[in-house]
Amino acid sequence: MNGPIGKWDIHPMHFWLRGTRPEQPVRYDEAIGMWHVYGYPEVLEILGDPGTFSSAVATRFVPPEQAAVAFDGNLTQADPPDHQKLRKLVGRTFTLKMVGELESRIAALTHELLDGIHGKRFDLAESLAYPLPVIVICDMLGLPRSDREQLKEWTDQSLLASTQLSTLAGDTALEESLDTQAEAAMELGFYLLEQVTDRRRRPREDLFSKLIEAEVDGERLTDRQIVNFGNLLISAGHITTTMLLGNTVLCLDAFPDVDERVRKDRSLVPGLLEESLRYLSPLAAGYRVTTRDVEIAGVRVPEGEVLEVWFSAANRDPRVFEDPDVFDPARSPNPQIGFGRGIHFCLGAPLARLEGRVAMNILFDRFPALRVDPDDRPAFLTSPEFTGVWRLPVRVD
């Protein structure tokens, strides 16, 4: 493939990032007891049919009683009709209007964070890509910024422990991974419960208070549901934006002609982000379980089987994307599914796009030259479910 991205140490399961195509759009993986789905039309079919392909897969990997506590209110694990009810309640507070009003704040934060950089070499993930979305989310929820490092520790603990899921019994590495993730989620959950309890006593002008007050058809969110949504927003919300920013800089470094082109024509910045979401999809994969026997791309998949649905591979499907290994910020059409599709389309997508657009424009303004440091390689996330960096050392000389 073009550029150096394929040479970096990205997870080996992301073989399409190295220019290798899946041999078929659907295949069974005996090593993990699950089905991989790689093709774009097949992924869309699955995302568009929650009745056949359920999102409630947690109980396949953790005990049902644990899943009931940990995922109540987590939109990613909910199926209709519960999903619609939760989405309506959360949507009453997490609105496009609210997101749009954050633009000037995001710009000010970006400048503030970049003002703290000294020297011509720094870690873009540590200096900007991580703290920017975390501060925005903390402010939205009304969490003290002084707690930012503790929040990072919990989310990092979960990410570092994340490994390839498997339905096969006796996978001790997976069991240890899930235990570590559960411990981090529990500690974060206790912290968020204290915040929710405080808002019930003393409401404020923040998202937690609005979630408590939200009502649809006489129903309100429980404390557990609010906590689990807050957990999802902190964990998944900031990770997506962090990886989007980092991945976009990686792509611009790999394709300097694109970097020059976008700097000259800032109207391409939104398209740049969409192409980044396609080319290096932050959420590489999601999971579904079949509720009946079904045929996908001519392959029969029995009821009760777990599917690993690869958004990142679908975004490289040559049946849909012409020259899929070419990075083009003006690609049109670009029906990338980096934020998912259907009822589970990412609720935070508008915020991630806004943060990405504002931050990239400011990076272009402040740094006429921004390159990955050739003497200090990026460090990538180890989980196959994500495509992104832990560290992104850059040079601005």
Rank of each mutant, 00 (worst) to 15 (best):
P41S: 13
L44Y: 09
L44M: 13
L44A: 03
I46R: 09
G48V: 11
P50H: 14
G51P: 08
T52W: 10
T52D: 02
A56H: 14
A58R: 07
T59D: 03
R60V: 01
V62M: 01
P63E: 00
P64K: 07
A68K: 14
V69Q: 06
A70V: 15
N74F: 07
L75M: 11
T76V: 10
T76L: 11
Q77V: 04
D79Q: 06
D79L: 11
P81W: 08
H83M: 11
K85E: 14
L86A: 03
R87E: 09
K88D: 12
K88C: 02
K88Y: 07
L89Q: 04
G91D: 01
R92S: 10
F94P: 07
L96C: 01
K97E: 03
V99F: 12
G100E: 03
G100M: 00
S104I: 03
R105Q: 06
I106Q: 01
A107K: 04
L109S: 02
L114A: 08
D115A: 06
D115P: 15
G116T: 06
G116A: 03
G116F: 00
I117L: 04
G119V: 08
K120D: 15
K120Y: 08
R121F: 00
F122Y: 01
D123M: 01
L124K: 02
L124W: 00
A125E: 15
E126Q: 10
S127A: 04
S127Q: 08
L128P: 04
P131R: 05
L132A: 03
I135H: 04
I135A: 00
V136T: 14
V136C: 06
I137K: 05
I137E: 05
I137Y: 03
C138N: 02
C138T: 10
G142H: 00
G142W: 00
L143T: 04
L143V: 09
P144T: 04
S146T: 12
S146P: 15
D147E: 14
R148S: 10
R148C: 14
E149Y: 15
Q150F: 14
K152D: 07
K152T: 13
E153R: 12
E153F: 09
D156Q: 06
Q157T: 15
S158R: 12
L159G: 07
L160R: 15
A161E: 04
Q164C: 08
L165K: 03
L168F: 09
